[in-house]
Computed example of a mutant assay.
Amino acid sequence: MNKTVLKSMEIIRLFFDEDKLTLLQIMKKTELPKTSAYRMAESLLELGFLEKDKDGTYRLGLIFLALGNLVAERLDIRSIALPYMQELRKETGEAVNLVIRDGNDAVYIEKVDTQERVRVYTQIGRRAPLYGGACPRILLSFTEREERERLIDSFQIVPYAQGTPKDKDELRRLIKETREAGWSISHSELEDHSSAIAAPIFNHKGDAVAGISLVGPEVRFRDEAHVRNMIDKLMNAARHISTELGAEKR
C-alpha cells in the first residue's frame, strides 16, 4: 500500500483520541521527521481533512461531519437487518417484520415469512397506526417525549381488533411499560388472534429509527418460557443491528 496514504491515515487516526495536536506532538506520535510531518499535515489541511487554529494546533476538519452524515444516511437498514431477521426466523420459527415511522403511521419495509402452516401474513408497504400492535407502538414509545405527546393528542383511536388500546390512558400505560422493559408485546391489536413481540432499533444519534418484531398466531405467544426465549433473541438481534447503524452498545 502507498506509504504516504498510510502515514496520512495514521495522522488522522491520532485525532480519534485527541481533540487537538501540535506539529511536535504529531511528529512524536507518528515518529515522522519534521519536514514529512509538516508536509502531510499541511496537505490534509489543504484537502479539508484537518483545520488549524490560530496557535498552530491541528484538529479534524468539518469535512468529517459531512462524510459521517452521508455514511449514516446511506446505510440501508433493510440490507443490514435482513440477515438478522433470517436468523431470527430460523431460531424461533416465527415471521419477522421490520417497520419504520412515516408521519403518524408505521410502514412495513421488510419481512421474512415463517415456514409454519399457520401464520400471520404481512405485506411489505402495509401501514399501521402507531398506537396499535407491538411493532408500531415500539416506534411511538421511543420517540422523544414532546413529539410522542403531540402524536398521542392527534390520534383518533380506531378499534382494529379485540385488543386495540381502548383509549389514550391505556395507550400511555402501554408506552410506559414498553419504555421500562425495552420491548413490547401485543395480542389481537391489529388482527384478532395474532400476536407480536417488538424491539427498537437505534441509530448513531440514539434515535429509534426502526422496529423489529416476531409475529404469529396468538396461541404460539402464550407460553411464558417460549415468549421469554423469543424476547431474548429479538433483543439480541435489535442490539446487533443498532450497533451496525452506529449506535452505542447497550
Rank of each mutant, 00 (worst) to 15 (best):
R172Q: 12
K168V: 01
R173E: 10
I201D: 06
K176H: 03
P200M: 13
I212S: 04
K166V: 11
S188E: 15
R173T: 09
V215C: 04
E189N: 11
N203H: 00
E170K: 12
H187N: 07
A181G: 04
L214V: 04
E189V: 04
D207M: 03
A198M: 12
S184N: 11
I185K: 13
S194F: 04
L171D: 05
G211D: 01
L190W: 00
E177Y: 10
F202H: 12
A208T: 13
D192G: 08
S186R: 00
T178K: 06
E191K: 15
G211P: 01
W183A: 09
G211M: 03
A196E: 14
G182E: 06
I212P: 06
D167W: 02
I201P: 11
E189Y: 09
A196G: 05
N203G: 11
A181S: 10
A199R: 14
V209A: 04
W183N: 10
E189K: 14
G206W: 04
S213Y: 02
L174S: 04
H204V: 15
E189P: 10
A208C: 14
L190V: 14
R172G: 05
A181W: 07
A198C: 09
S188M: 02
A196T: 09
E180M: 01
L174C: 00
L190R: 13
E170A: 05
I197W: 04
I197E: 08
L171A: 05
H187S: 01
K168G: 00
A210M: 04
S186I: 02
K205V: 07
R179V: 12
